[in-house]
Amino acid sequence: MEKTAMKKPIKIDEENRPAILEAFKLENGRATANTLSGAEAFRLAIEAEQELEKRGIPLSKRKGAQAIFSPSGPANAYQYSMLTTFFEIERNSQGWRLMSVRKVTTRPRSTGGMGLIITREQANIITKKALEGLHVAQYA
C-alpha cells in the first residue's frame, strides 16, 4: 500500500467537511470510477460509533478504536485488479479523525467493507458484557 498524501489527521465534523472532501479528491486524482468520496468518512464514523455503542463500550472508553474501509473487488467476470480508495479513521476523546486516505489495488471477488479494530480494554468490556449472567465451569 502506498503512503497517504495527508499531512495530519482531520477531525470528522462539519467544520472540516471541505478538508475531508479535498483529501479524498487529492488522493483519487482524476479517477472517478471505483473511488470513494469524503462522504464515506462521515458514514463510516457513524457506523463505527454505533457498533461500539451496540457492543456496550461506554463513551469514555472508546478512545483508540480504529475503523478501516475499502470497497469490494470487481465481479467474477472482471479479470483484472482495479484501483480504488482505502481509508482509516481513529476515535479519540473528542470523536473520530480521518487518519489516512490512499489508493490501493483490489482483486476480483475480494471482500470489502468496514473493519473495526478495538483496544484490549475494549475487548475486555465486550467479553465481560457477553458473559454477564453466565457462570464459566472450571475443569481440571
Results as ranks from 00 to 15, higher is better:
64 G>A: 04
77 A>L: 06
7 K>C: 09
51 E>R: 15
90 E>I: 08
132 E>M: 15
101 V>N: 04
61 K>S: 03
128 K>R: 11
92 N>W: 05
57 I>E: 05
129 K>Q: 11
127 T>W: 14
52 L>C: 03
87 F>K: 00
96 W>R: 02
113 G>V: 03
69 F>I: 02
36 L>E: 00
82 M>I: 10
80 Y>N: 10
54 K>D: 05
109 R>H: 02
48 A>G: 15
6 M>V: 04
17 R>H: 07
50 Q>P: 12
116 L>C: 02
19 A>W: 14
52 L>R: 06
55 R>D: 11
136 V>R: 12
108 P>A: 04
98 L>Q: 03
47 E>F: 13
119 T>H: 12
78 Y>W: 07
37 S>Y: 13
71 P>S: 05
92 N>R: 15
78 Y>T: 00
76 N>D: 09
70 S>W: 13
38 G>W: 07
112 G>L: 09
140 A>F: 14
114 M>Y: 11
61 K>D: 10
133 G>K: 09
45 A>N: 00
11 K>M: 06
115 G>K: 15
39 A>C: 07
113 G>C: 11
12 I>E: 04
53 E>I: 08
89 I>N: 03
81 S>L: 06
139 Y>R: 07
106 T>N: 13
86 F>T: 00
98 L>C: 10
16 N>G: 02
10 I>F: 12
29 G>C: 05
87 F>S: 01
19 A>F: 15
24 F>M: 06
128 K>Q: 09
73 G>V: 01
62 R>N: 07
77 A>H: 04
60 S>P: 04
121 E>Y: 15
130 A>V: 03
21 L>M: 14
23 A>E: 06
62 R>A: 12
61 K>V: 04
128 K>P: 11
24 F>C: 00
92 N>F: 08
32 T>H: 02
140 A>I: 13
65 A>P: 03
64 G>R: 03
8 K>L: 09
120 R>Y: 07
39 A>L: 08
14 E>Y: 14
74 P>L: 00
